[in-house]
Design a binder for these strands. Structure first.
Length: 635
RNA sequence: CGGGACGUAGCGCAGCCUGGUAGCGCACUUGCCUUGGGAGCAAGGGGUCGCCGGUUCAAGUCCGGCCGUCCCGACCA
């Protein structure tokens, strides 16, 4: 049983963060006059206007009183860095699968993420609202999603046996609100957002805050009179998202995403680039083009020549036991790129053969979209025999009785080889257009590293990404099902055109860690760090030193800086390790020798560099360093 | 929901095969010592071995059921 019991929780609170509570803080207490008053002031005192960074108030938190239980060891169920480090740094604790407590420092991070989102949403003209987490079933029944959504929707009944669900998303609620309040084109456009607790009963929660069941999400919904106006709103949101993630110091890409079953005209996913990302992203080395793998286009690159029928016929050759592209290619001495790979699909639109160059892989999403199908599935061994009369590995388009689609790459094969639809036999000298006629040439393959960008001559590169945001043009899907309409200037009733825009708050924080960490711990970008500076007296036994360190800490917080004052009576090594682990961007260290000489040190967590500075100049220097770091998080 | 694994002190684990006194490291408490990168010595506290049932003189260990958790696949912020 991993769960902490009440008693255990208390114990763990004292373990490290609150550790040495008696010994340590009593001694530390001597260095300040009155524990309680000081403590109150340190926690929530509003501080005078800040000259630095436009911030209004700072903070001075005493570590000895703060619940930030760090640990050297990693809980065994944490797999990815961000999850491990959030646990080790005392930011979160698990309550149940996919459900977490946010401890004080973790909550500080989330609040900062939220704050940046709020500022940019407001700037973009959106208005904040707050919708309920508990939603009556009627709304979901009306949109048809009560049945369609599946088990991810957590349903329950109240005391009067009325049905409710926990909201996994809020299209129904917002559309209901808007259809009641909006009746005229004069009230549009409108863009409403909230930052709210969502619940999705995920089949498989994992990776800590990266994929929880309960999580904070910013969701925005826009309402416009027509597609043109909706496109403007979409662009505004797209731009706002760029500002948001830049301000958080994240390296990201806005990638074109497949709109899939939802339809709609366009959709972009905002991906934070990180090796541990769950999604594959392709982007151009030269221009701005980025797409996720399903969506990435592979247009004909011009090297393909149109196939003009030429005289002759294909020749059958014996290829005993040669089924794979590699086997056939080396057996016949023909390059894989000249093989006509033929794949058979079962779909809701009937059976289809897809032909592409042997050096490429098929993209099922593209096949599905091309056919306008709801589903496609690679045919099994049995079905392949039924359709071709041969075991798999010997299928070919010549003489095949199902629909044949060809990838653009097939056009480049003037004379190729393919399966003969007969066991242990292939055809050579096969000419597309002469020996078989595809119903269409289309983009049906998966992109590959080094492919030419569809927008420019640059090469495409692969990377991994974490989807932290998604913007979507919804069209009239929900306004239709929930009949949200308005009257235009001519008095005519029209459907409101919608868009929706999400950002995962906790996931964004997790993504920031994935992108900014080293073996010692987190390296927060200043804009979302729980604290900006850690003031660290190396010993609590030297009263004068502690007092001076505290004075500097107060000075900094008075300037609007968020300070963690490590007043724990711990050995220096422990304090250093904790400051690194928690990832506070700057550390001001008061050591005895330096102090006697009138100096302290400022250490940069990310660069790992330390500078020795006269104590009287510390505050100014810290402000300057922070300003530089804040500029790195410029929108 | 399918496939795999795990559940023993707050955390990380051993013990189980071959049934017989519940252990180790870290953390915690006390004392000494130490004080610029998770020190050292000594003495302590802490466990319904996930739950229920069965086999047995005897179950952490063997058997059955249940619960929980994690990993791999289809979904998503």
């Amino acid at each position: 049983m991993r769960r902490e019991r009440p008693g255990g929780g208390e114990g763990s609170r004292r373990r490290r963060g609150g550790g040495k509570r008696c010994g340590g803080s009593l001694r530390a207490g001597k260095s300040r006059e009155n524990g309680q008053g000081e403590r109150y002031r340190g926690r929530s005192r509003p501080v005078c206007r800040a000259p630095v960074g436009g911030r209004e108030e700072g903070a001075l938190i005493r570590y000895s009183e703060y619940l930030m239980p760090t640990s050297k060891e990693t809980p065994s169920d944490a797999e990815v860095v961000s999850h491990r480090l959030m646990l080790r740094a005392g930011l979160i604790r698990k309550v149940a699968s996919g459900i977490y407590n946010y401890l004080p420092a973790g909550l500080r991070v989330l609040r900062k993420v939220e704050r940046i989102i709020r500022e940019e949403m407001d700037r973009a003209g959106a208005q904040e609202v707050l919708m309920p987490a508990v939603i009556p079933a009627e709304l979901w029944k009306e949109s048809g999603r009560w049945e369609a959504y599946g088990k991810e929707l957590l349903r329950f009944r109240d005391r009067a046996d009325r049905e409710f669900c926990l909201g996994p998303t809020h299209e129904e609620v917002i559309t209901d609100l808007v259809r009641r309040e909006i009746h005229s084109y004069r009230q549009l456009p409108l863009n409403l957002y909230q930052i709210q607790d969502k619940f999705r009963d995920e089949i498989r929660p994992r990776f800590g805050l990266m994929r929880g069941r309960e999580f904070f999400m910013k969701d925005a919904y826009s309402f416009d009179v027509d597609e043109e106006s909706a496109a403007v709103t979409y662009r505004k949101m797209y731009d706002a998202y760029g500002r948001i993630f830049r301000r958080m110091g994240l390296e990201f890409r806005a990638v074109e995403a497949d709109t899939g079953a939802i339809g709609g005209s366009s959709s972009h996913e905002f991906m934070v680039i990180a090796d541990s990302g769950e999604d594959a992203v392709v982007s151009c080395e030269r221009c701005e083009y980025s797409a996720n793998v399903e969506k990435a286009e592979c247009p004909p690159d011009g090297s393909e020549r149109p196939s003009s029928p030429s005289p002759g016929t294909p020749r059958k050759v014996s290829t005993p036991g040669k089924r794979t592209i590699e086997e056939v290619s080396s057996f016949l001495g023909i390059a894989p790129g000249l093989l006509l790979k033929t794949l058979l699909f079962e779909t809701d639109k009937g059976d289809v053969a897809v032909v592409l160059s042997g050096s490429h892989e098929v993209n099922e999403t593209k096949v599905k979209n091309h056919l306008g199908a709801d589903w496609v599935k690679l045919a099994g061994e049995e079905r392949v025999r039924e359709l071709t009369g041969a075991p798999s590995g010997y299928a070919g388009p010549v003489g095949l009785s199902v629909r044949v689609l060809a990838d653009h790459s097939v056009r480049g094969i003037a004379c190729g080889a393919t399966g003969a639809n007969e066991k242990d036999a292939h055809l050579v000298d096969v000419v597309p257009g002469r020996d078989f006629q595809p119903e269409a040439y289309a983009d049906l393959r998966l992109v590959e590293e080094g492919d030419r960008c569809p927008r420019c001559p640059g090469p495409l590169r692969f990377s991994r990404g974490i989807e932290v945001g998604h913007v979507f043009r919804l069209g009239t899907k929900y306004s239709k099902s929930l009949s949200a309409t308005y009257l235009d200037a001519g008095g005519k009733e029209r459907m409101i055109v919608m868009g929706c825009y999400g950002i995962g708050v906790g996931r964004t924080a997790a993504a920031a860690i994935e992108q900014h960490h080293d073996p010692d711990g987190i390296q927060w970008p200043v804009s979302i760090a729980p604290f900006e500076v850690c003031v660290l007296p190396v010993t609590m036994k030297n009263a004068a030193l502690v007092k001076e360190a505290e004075r500097v800490a107060e000075d900094l917080s008075g300037k609007g800086i968020e300070v963690l004052f490590d007043d724990r009576d711990e050995r220096p090594g422990i304090k250093f390790k904790d400051a690194d682990l928690v990832g506070i961007p700057l550390r001001v260290t008061f050591g005895e020798k330096n102090y006697e000489a009138g100096y302290a040190e400022i250490r940069d967590r990310k660069k790992g560099e330390t500078v020795r500075v006269g104590i009287s100049a510390i505050a100014d220097r810290v402000c300057a360093e922070l300003d530089l770091k804040r500029k790195e998080c410029a929108p």
